[in-house]
Structures are given as structure tokens and as C-alpha cells.
Amino acid sequence: MTDLLLALWPLFALIVGGYVLSRRGFPNEAFWPGAERLNYFILFPALLFNSLATVPLDNPQLPRMALAVLLGLGIAWLALLLVRRLRGWPAARFGAFSQGILRFNTYLGLAAVGSLFGQPGLTLAALMLALMVPTVNVLSVWSLTAERGVSVRSLLLPIIRNPLILACLAGALVNLSGLGLPGGSGRLLSLLAAASLPLGLLCVGAALKPEQLSGEVPALAWNSLLRLLLMPLLALAVAYGLQLPSMESTVLVLFFALPTAPTAYVLTRQLGGDANLMAGIITLQHLLAAASLVGVLLLLERLL
């Protein structure tokens, strides 16, 4: 218990710090969008690239990990489609609900995995992201645009341009080529990577919108409970079924237990979804995740 708290509380302290700084107007209102773009397009890709460029990629569990990710996301997606058919949600609401359940806060996930497992865990998480990020992005765009039709180009173009996916692919290719990171480039990437997660967590806090919690409380509550409790249980069942080892199972369950991605708000607003509902889901999930993540990891300690 103590080890878990020591690993997790600094991460949530950074989120709270970002929220407080943003509400106090420090350094200024224009800083946070710029900081988020810097992190998304440069610092975070540097972390992913560095995590995959030089480490061994011969983990024999990777095929089963990939299958576990696709099974978990696939089961959740089919359940969402069934509930949408029963409830008759329009795409604007369905897009917000589905992102609340399928998407995940990448910054928080990598920071937690790094605190718990160090570089081996980060490498495994980066490989998972190379599969999870494109899958979840396609499902998110489809859920928001299904009523008015969606082309293959509109689904694939955001993936092809996604800097996180490009960084994972580039890192894996450099690794497989055997070139390594010569001439101090590895040190440069390490410095950029070191700034990514703290800045990312501060930006997560700055993006929270507590004023949106006064709206649809039942909808916010059930969506958050499904994401923070049912999704990790689903991942745990999949991990047991595929007999994944302890670290792989923990990383899988952890990513399925994360609160949804703050960037879901931007996508929802751009594609005409219910942005207020999405903002409320993001905020409530992050408020509850401080307790739910500890509970999920304690359960894993007893079971694995």
C-alpha cells in the first residue's frame, strides 16, 4: 500500500498543481495550449521514440499482449454499440460516452508504469500504445460521425499524422535497423523525454473543468464507473484468459483503468459532439481516479 501511494501521489499532485496554476492565471492563459502542443508534438514523441529505439523488442509475450488489447477494446466497443441501439443515443452523445470508456490518459499511464516498473515497463507500455492509440482514435472518430457518414480517408488521416504513432513506428524501425542513437542523440532524446511527463500532467490539470460537473450527474457517474472499475476488470479477465505474466497483466489492467484522455474534449468539439458532456466526463474521471487506481493496483497485488 505504501509503495503504491509513494508511486502515485506525485503524479496526482502534478495534476492538482496544473489545475491550481491555471485557475490563478499563471503564467498566463496562452501558456497552457502552447505547452500542450509542445508536449504532444515534440516532448512526448521523443519519450516514445527513445523508449523503443534502443531496448530489446524480443519479449515473447508481445503477441498475446496485442491480442489482449484488441480483445478488451473489441468487447467494450461491441457492448457500447448494443447499448446505443437500445438507448437510441445520437452520435453527439454516443461519441462522448464511447470516448469516456475507450480512451485513456497516456501521460498518466506512462508516468504510473514508469514509477512502478521503470524502463522495462515504459518499453512495454510504448509498444501497447502503438496498437491502442490508432485503434481508439478510429473508434472515437467513427462514434462521433457515424450518423452523417465517414470516409476511410477521414478515419485514417488523423492516424497517419498522429505524432505518437509516428514516434512509436520510427523508434521500432531504428531499433530493428541496429543503427542505435549515435553522437549524443540518445542523451538529447532523454532530456526531452524527461520534461514530457511532468509537463503533460500539469497540462492535464489545467484542462479540467469542474464547472461542467453540475450537469448530467447520472450520466457522468455511470460512465466514470464503467471506465474506472468495469474496464480494468474486463482487462483482468482477458489477462487471466490469455495467461499473461504479472508485469504484462498489470500494465494492461492499468491502462484500462486510466481516466479518459483530456484531448477527447478537443476531438468532440471539432466533430460536433456534446463537448460539455465530454468535459464533465473528463473532469469527474480524473477526480475519482486518484482513489480508483490505488484500489485497482491493490487488487492486482493480491491476485497476481
Rank of each mutant, 00 (worst) to 15 (best):
M1V: 09
L6S: 08
W9P: 03
P10D: 04
L14V: 09
Y19E: 03
S22L: 04
E29Y: 06
E29S: 12
A30L: 09
P33Y: 13
P33T: 06
R37S: 10
Y40K: 04
I42L: 14
I42Q: 01
A46T: 05
L47N: 00
L48M: 07
S51V: 00
L57M: 14
P60G: 02
A66F: 11
V69N: 10
G72L: 12
W77E: 12
L86F: 08
P90G: 13
G95L: 09
S98V: 05
L102A: 04
F104V: 05
S115P: 13
G118L: 01
A125C: 03
A126I: 03
M128F: 13
A130W: 07
P134N: 09
T135G: 03
T135E: 05
V138F: 14
E147I: 05
R148K: 15
V152T: 12
R153S: 15
L155E: 02
I159A: 10
I165S: 02
A167P: 00
C168T: 10
A170I: 06
L173M: 14
N175V: 07
L176A: 11
G180T: 08
L181S: 12
G184V: 07
R187Q: 14
L188P: 06
L191G: 07
L192K: 08
A193C: 01
S196R: 14
L199T: 02
G200Q: 04
G200E: 03
L201P: 04
K209M: 01
P210W: 00
Q212K: 11
S214Q: 13
V217L: 12
A221D: 03
N223C: 15
L233Q: 08
L234A: 05
L236Y: 10
A239G: 15
G241C: 09
S246M: 13
M247F: 11
S249G: 11
T250I: 09
L254D: 03
F256Q: 01
A261H: 01
P262W: 08
T268Q: 03
G273N: 03
A275T: 07
M278G: 05
A279S: 02
Q285K: 03
A289N: 00
A290D: 01
S292E: 02
S292H: 08
S292N: 00
V294M: 08
V294H: 11
G295V: 04
V296S: 09
L298E: 09
L298Q: 12
E301H: 11
R302F: 10
R302T: 15
